[in-house]
């Protein structure tokens, strides 16, 4: 039955929204996009049977829709890329709020690879298949994207509250 094949969809929705939001940088738009993607998935004739394949399939649908949207609305303004020294980085700056802020200033390609690995939870080989690139490219892309994200966090004036830090 069609509904059984989509049994995992409800559980995936929050992560799909976070994934789309990271790529697009817009929460409302991300929700609309995932809603549409879910509708499209439910209407699909061929649906992967096993849960990992279904998960990868759903993220691929959302990813493709998000990338199409980015292509249509090329309003991203690139900022200077800063590569900080990792061993001198102040870890106290890393918090959800600063990471969210930092992600918005990254180029779409860097946001995408972070979203695939850290939010969608793809392995390097799954991400390589999704983006149609070698695994080595994924390794270098994620390393560079994370370094740029740390650079963006360092350059930002947003700092997490001390009270949040003490709870960690």
């Amino acid at each position: 039955m069609a509904t059984d094949r989509h049994g995992n969809l409800t559980a995936l929705l929050p992560r799909l929204v976070a994934f789309a939001r990271t790529i697009l940088g817009d929460a409302d738009f991300a929700r609309d996009l995932v809603q549409e993607a879910a509708t499209r998935a439910l209407a699909a004739q061929r649906v992967p049977d096993d849960p990992p394949a279904y998960r990868a399939w759903m993220f691929r649908i959302v990813r493709n829709a998000a990338v199409d949207e980015l292509r249509r609305n090329r309003n991203f303004v690139s900022v200077d890329e800063i590569l900080p020294d990792l061993w001198r980085f102040d870890d106290a700056c890393i918090a959800k709020i600063t990471v969210e802020q930092g992600l918005t200033s990254l180029a779409p390609a860097h946001r995408e690879i972070i979203a695939l690995i850290d939010i969608a939870g793809f392995s390097y080989s799954e991400a390589a298949e999704c983006l149609d690139v070698p695994v080595g490219t994924i390794m270098s892309r994620i390393a560079r994207a994370r370094q740029l994200l740390l650079g963006a966090i360092e350059a930002s004036t947003v700092r997490p509250l001390q009270s949040n830090q003490s709870r960690r």
Binding site: P14, R15, A18, I119
Partner: peptide, 13 residues
């Protein structure tokens, strides 16, 4: 911290 974004994502879909 990035993973935390996904865990805290509100979802009203």
């Amino acid at each position: 911290s990035v993973m935390e974004i996904a865990e805290d994502a509100p979802c009203t879909l």
